[in-house]
Design a protein around this nucleic acid. Sequence first.
DNA 1: ACTAACCGTTAGTGGCTACTGACCAAGAGG
DNA 2: CCTCTTGGTCAGTAGCCACTAACGGTTAGT
Lengths: 99, 99
Amino acid sequence: MWDALGDRTRRAIVLRLSEGPRAVGDLATYLPVSRSAVSQHLKVLKDAGLVAERVAGTRRIYRLNEAGVIALRDQLDTFWNRALGGYQELIEQPQEDQS
Amino acid sequence: MWDALGDRTRRAIVLRLSEGPRAVGDLATYLPVSRSAVSQHLKVLKDAGLVAERVAGTRRIYRLNEAGVIALRDQLDTFWNRALGGYQELIEQPQEDQS
DNA sequence: ACTAACCGTTAGTGGCTACTGACCAAGAGG
DNA sequence: CCTCTTGGTCAGTAGCCACTAACGGTTAGT
């Protein structure tokens, strides 16, 4: 799940799609990579369930997938709850020094 | 920032540290990698401001860094607000078909 | 002082991945 | 039918990253 958004280009694609549905070539125009790269990234995002595909003639219109995005956000929240939840116990302990 | 938590081992370290401060060798015991690898991951996390270091004799006790963790969480929230915020406009638009 | 424990650093290696370019398939339009 | 556009796929490459192994420095214990 982290892998899907672990890439800078894929995050740019997700943010782009958040503005509205886009075709592959349209996305590639505003990215410093080729259409081929964009297509491969979209495949990763699709496999992760983050985007959905709609065929319109020779073009493929991609858009964000509600369920996938929300599911990912939930997983991130779980991680943060564990990371921050345990941390609350620490800041109450005395700390002698620190670098 | 995503790079810091983009690695599976580093996420395990963060979760481990959320339970309390740990020494390097202590962390390595419960991880399938060597002390050297753990030390390097801690360096990355320290550079990212996610952990702090405390010297105790020959040992280095690591703990989570409040400011860094909170800052990272804020950045993640910003990303999600943008990704989900824009999405709200989409689900109101008519959708002909989808694959 | 000598030894053992603990840890950071460095060099080197293997594997993964993002990227490009070429090719191919399919629809649109003349 | 032919051509152009669009995009998925494949092969190959370059770069990065996690890891190990060996080394050196520092501290605690005897």
